[in-house]
Structures are given as C-alpha cells and as structure tokens.
Design a protein around this nucleic acid. Sequence first.
DNA 1: TGCATATGAGCAT
DNA 2: ATGCTCATATGCA
Length: 161
Amino acid sequence: MVCAVLEMSNDLTIQTTWGSISIKTEQGKVLSCTLPRLDTDPDIPFSVTQYESDEISGFVEAALTGKTNPVPTLELIQGSDFQRRVWDAISEIPVGETCTYHQLAENIGQPSAVRAVSNACGKNPALLFIPCHRIKRSDGGLGGFSAGLAWKRLLLAAEHS
DNA sequence: TGCATATGAGCAT
DNA sequence: ATGCTCATATGCA
C-alpha cells in the first residue's frame, strides 16, 4: 500500500491545443505552474482539451477560458525576499485589471527598482497563480512573458470580458 | 568583475 | 525620434 504522505505530492497536467500545462502541488497547495514556451503564435485556436476535476485544475481551466474562480493557495517556493515581495504584490492585482512594472515597484516601496521588478516577474514560478500577465509597460506596451507573449495575450483577453 | 534582463525617466543629439 | 546613462536584483561567464 502506498503511503498517504507520498500521495500528497502530485503533478497535475492540463492538456490544451497549445501544449500541456504542468503543475506541481504538495498537500493541496501549488508549488509551481509552467506553460509550454511558445516563441511564435500558434496557428490553431486555443482550447482546453483535458483537465481533472480538482480545485487546482479547475482554476487553471477557468483562468484560461475567462471564468472567474478563487485562486487556490500557493505554497511559495524558493526565491529571494525581494522576489517574494514582488510576487505578493502581483497577487494583489484584481482579475481584469492591469498595472505597470513601475507601479509594482512603488507598491513594494522601491520605486527605483523597476528593472529588478521586471526581472523578478520573469522568474515567476507559478504562472496563472501569480498573475504576472496583468503587468504591462508604462508606455502601454505588453512587456514580456516567460512562456511567450501568445499566452499573455490569451490570458488578458480571457479575463477582459 | 562584467554582462544581460519581461523597465523607465531624463537628457543630449 | 533615437540613443545613451543610471537605478536595482540576480544569475551566469
């Protein structure tokens, strides 16, 4: 018989037409979430083709398709104090709203550390759960996204409605 | 050390 | 408009 503690550590996978999303969890909390890197926009339309009916997978499916759902709790992984402050600040951005790298820097009390803030955004270990897709440049540009801008556009479009 | 980052403001061409 | 320079955190050569 498998030890119950071992079963609490788990890898979830969600299949989409743009590739599979993988989530690491432990005791029901999210450790990380990675999306397949898309260097160019896919030709095919996006859709979710398979996901499990647990809370975490359900959240991801909802985030990708524009439904609202409470964010499951994160178990924040390793990162410097600075990175955690940035990621916490990102998590406070409400659904459907955006802010700039500059505003984020101000929110953590280091208005001149904008460059470092954007760098921390790029290290986001839990895409979708830490909504770094809601951050844009102050000149209106999209900024970047570690898994590819196609994802960022998809997510912003999904929650704009 | 030096360099590159998902930035941005200021200042000189 | 275009191109520096500086500010900050972090990792890599």
